[in-house]
């Protein structure tokens, strides 16, 4: 179970580097473009995170908000997102895909129907930003039943006792939020401190793949290389916004950026 995500980490480890995870918003800037972006970055990425955009995000910074509003304005619906995933998964270079978003959208779609469609379109994992532990226990179990990895989030404010309990209930991947911030904040904590906290998590469960996200850019990524995986999101969303503003093709620019990111962690 959960093979593809675990395999991706294994492969990176074999190459002696962290796995590279990207986050883009489904439908940004259009349905077609977001699929093209996924296809073009796929060869350099180990796991793709795809956001389902919400118009009242309580944990996202400006860059991802801009991407999300742009996608919603262009008419993206949840069923379109599953279509994007389905098409992406047909690409022979496709990578494991994690959907990420806010619980209300899953709730309105219906938990079971949502998971069913995830399965049909071959979604590998889920991150639900505003469904923390223990509230997420039942939903996480349902995910597991459907062979979808539910990814638990940990933060610098998570107490040690709580860390242990969450990790115990986690599946094959956990996500450590590097600092107190919304997505896309400037890295305000030293990489040393982040890795210290990361190691505390690894000590509790050395086998579980732990990725670090929030504040990771071309400038900061090589300093956190020791982690199992690193997530870059806002920097990519920002690049899409910049490209559109300069009337350039975001697909090419994002692809270039991801290549650079990859080279930094080799």
């Amino acid at each position: 179970m959960f093979n593809s995500i675990s395999e991706a980490f294994k492969k990176a480890k074999k190459e002696n580097r962290p796995a590279l995870l990207t986050y883009t918003v489904a439908g940004d800037s259009t349905k077609k473009k977001s699929l093209e972006i996924l296809n073009s970055i796929s060869k350099n990425v180990d796991i793709c995170e795809l956001g389902f955009p919400h118009n009242t995000p309580i944990a996202d910074g400006g860059q991802i908000q801009t991407s999300a509003y742009r996608a919603i304005k262009n008419g993206i619906k949840i069923r379109d997102i599953f279509q994007i995933v389905k098409k992406f998964k047909k690409n022979k270079y496709s990578k494991p895909l994690i959907l990420m978003g806010y619980y209300n959208m899953i709730y309105q779609y219906g938990e079971n129907k949502f998971l069913n469609d995830c399965k049909k379109s071959k979604v590998d994992g889920l991150i639900v930003v505003d469904l923390p532990w223990p509230e997420n226990k039942n939903f996480a179990k349902k995910c597991k039943k459907n062979s979808i990895s539910f990814i638990q989030l940990l933060s610098p404010t998570t107490s040690k006792a709580r860390l242990k309990k969450i990790i115990k209930d986690s599946h094959n991947m956990i996500y450590y939020i590097s600092m107190l911030s919304t997505t896309g904040g400037k890295l305000k904590v030293s990489p040393k401190k982040i890795l210290f906290n990361y190691n505390e998590i690894k000590k509790i469960s050395p086998k579980k793949n732990c990725v670090i996200g929030f504040g990771i850019t071309e400038k900061t990524i090589d300093k956190l290389k020791k982690a199992d995986g690193l997530v870059v999101g806002s920097a990519i969303c920002k690049e899409i916004t910049r490209s559109l503003k300069n009337r350039q093709n975001p697909v090419i620019n994002v692809s270039k950026m991801v290549t650079k990111l990859k080279n930094k962690i080799l």
Partner: peptide, 11 residues
Amino acid sequence: GSYIPETLKKP
């Protein structure tokens, strides 16, 4: 309920 990001659990 409390549908909050993990970071806000402690505060």
